[in-house]
Computed example of a mutant assay.
Amino acid sequence: MILVTGGTGLVGAHLLYHLVKNDEKVRAIYRSEEKIEAVKKVFSLYSDDVTLVSKIEWFKADITEVPAMIPAFVDVDKVYHCAAFISFNPRDYRQMRKVNIHGTAIIVNLAIDAKVSKICFVGSIASVGNSLNRSLITEENEWNPEEDNSGYSITKFGAEMEIWRASQEGVDVVIVNPGVILGSGFFTAGSGKLFSQVYNGFKYYTEGVTGFVGVKDVVEVMIQLMNSSIKNERFILVSENKSFKEILCSIAQYFGKKQPTKNIKPWQTGIFWRFSWFLSLITRKEPLLSKYSARSAHSVSKYSSEKVEKSLSFQFEKIEVVIKRVCNNFTRFQSF
């Protein structure tokens, strides 16, 4: 039995399809029936077989609650831990610690007790150290706790430490650190907003650079790593390093929309995130932009996936191909 946490998120939903397609016996954690409907939509992008989702054993639980999670590990041999709380709002820091660190600690403890053979953890490039000389960032770059790290970065690094603890307790582990994941099915949150915003005529761009990767590649690498003899290693998953301007313009091209034309400078986002923060104090609503999301929009960080490419003889899809497919699927989603 394979257990998947975060099965109703972007990575989890696409992972579930590929596992079921391979006739794996799968149990997936979920929190609401509404989220299962989102998974069904993702499945529909791959296949017309409406019975595939029913092959999943759905298990309702909160990963931060031990009593609820204990039964989820019955007869489980492998775990894909995809669940995470993603936010750059400082107000969410405690909740991120609860889900990302405490939740992962619970997964690790139960996996050890259940004598699980292997765990695949979906980390992030946010928990990989920066380069000091603008060279490509690799798995060897150490995360620096002394830097002004975002709460998300801190909690994802903390989660990785829990996963490494599992490796010291007899459970084999592999960690993937994807860049910005582009994929279909979740267009109102995360990277999906890039597509919905451009579709609706978004005019702005920044020239920050980071690593991007397609969700299909992320899932394929995860499955290959879990089915291999590779253990106790981490891998950066990035297809290409692109500027946000390049990504937004490419999305606009495939939508047949006008490309963003207004370059937002660092000083402008600096003013805006401070104004958003002040406004959120009054309204108690989520700020439109945080200090850390503003900073990431302008930072230049380039990543290398050479390690995983050599270890698995894996070739990533070009981001242009990924964007074209996601734009086509976005159009299909409008008819659902």
Rank of each mutant, 00 (worst) to 15 (best):
Y46P: 07
K35P: 04
A252D: 03
S32A: 13
K285T: 12
R234M: 06
V173Y: 06
T64K: 08
K265D: 00
V215H: 06
K307R: 13
Q253K: 15
V213D: 00
L281G: 02
E233S: 08
K307W: 08
K21M: 05
Y152D: 07
Y80H: 07
F255A: 03
L52W: 12
S229Y: 10
E139N: 09
S127L: 06
Y80L: 01
I175S: 02
E24Q: 13
I101T: 09
K318L: 12
E37C: 00
S299T: 15
I36F: 09
K242E: 03
Y17D: 03
A189H: 14
E320G: 05
D77M: 07
N329K: 06
G201P: 08
G201T: 11
P178I: 05
T104Q: 07
K98E: 14
T210K: 12
N144C: 03
V116G: 04
S296Y: 13
I107D: 02
S304Q: 08
K231L: 00
D113Q: 14
G170V: 09
E34K: 15
T210A: 04
I63N: 01
N133P: 00
S184Y: 14
L19N: 05
A72V: 09
S135R: 15
K216G: 00
W164P: 05
R91E: 12
A38V: 11
G208W: 11
L279C: 04
Q315E: 13
Q334A: 00
E207L: 02
K258C: 02
H18R: 15
N130D: 13
S135D: 15
G214C: 01
K310P: 00
R165A: 03
Q224N: 13
D148F: 10
V122F: 08
S313Y: 12
I119E: 01
I163R: 03
K55F: 08
T155W: 05
G179R: 11
